[in-house]
């Protein structure tokens, strides 16, 4: 009998959850295949060219890297056991990001789509609200704003 193996290629490496290098959604989805997983969901949070009516030229993300890595690893572990995931991957970018780049990617895989979608939503919401990562928006008028679009008062994920 072949033992069941859980397959979390990225989740096992907690140093890999925070990346100063550009994120690669195609590479991540190519890792995300599992014989027990009939549904794979990939979420990419991307840099928009505007926020609250103001034109954004670029963003910078900063993280408390060691803490953020550990917290993302714990969130993936919690989601994996709650939704019986076969695949749970999350990476958040740091540094300067241009419009259209991925700031955060979450990949979930499970037997059926309901769990993969629910777990993916849970993971991205937790990352946004709890993990020590901060966004600074650089605006077209030359000013900057820390923590724009921070919805920390909202905990149910409805924004």
């Amino acid at each position: 009998m072949i033992p069941l193996q859980s397959y979390h290629p990225v989740a096992e490496d907690s140093s890999n959850h925070i990346s100063a290098a550009p994120l690669d959604p195609v590479a991540l989805i190519s890792l995300a295949h599992h014989p027990k997983a009939g549904a794979i969901v990939l979420f990419s949070g991307e840099v928009r060219d505007s926020n609250l009516g103001k034109q954004v030229t670029h963003l910078e993300y900063e993280a408390h890297v060691s803490m953020a890595s550990k917290m993302i690893a714990a969130i993936l572990k919690e989601a994996t056991s709650r939704w019986y995931l076969n695949i749970a991957i999350a990476q958040h970018r740091t540094g300067k990001l241009e419009v259209g780049e991925s700031a955060v990617i979450v990949v979930t895989g499970s037997a059926h789509r309901k769990e993969a979608y629910a777990a993916n939503r849970f993971i991205i919401d937790k990352i946004k609200h709890e993990v020590p990562i901060w966004k600074c928006e650089y605006l077209a008028d030359g000013t900057k704003e820390w923590g724009g679009n921070c919805n920390c008062g909202v905990v149910n994920g409805e924004w």
Binding site: G45, M67, A68, H92, I127, K128, K135, C150
Partner: peptide
């Protein structure tokens, strides 16, 4: 001691 403002990732 790390002083952690409210998160604004994602």
């Amino acid at each position: 001691i790390a002083i952690i403002p409210p998160s604004s990732g994602g």
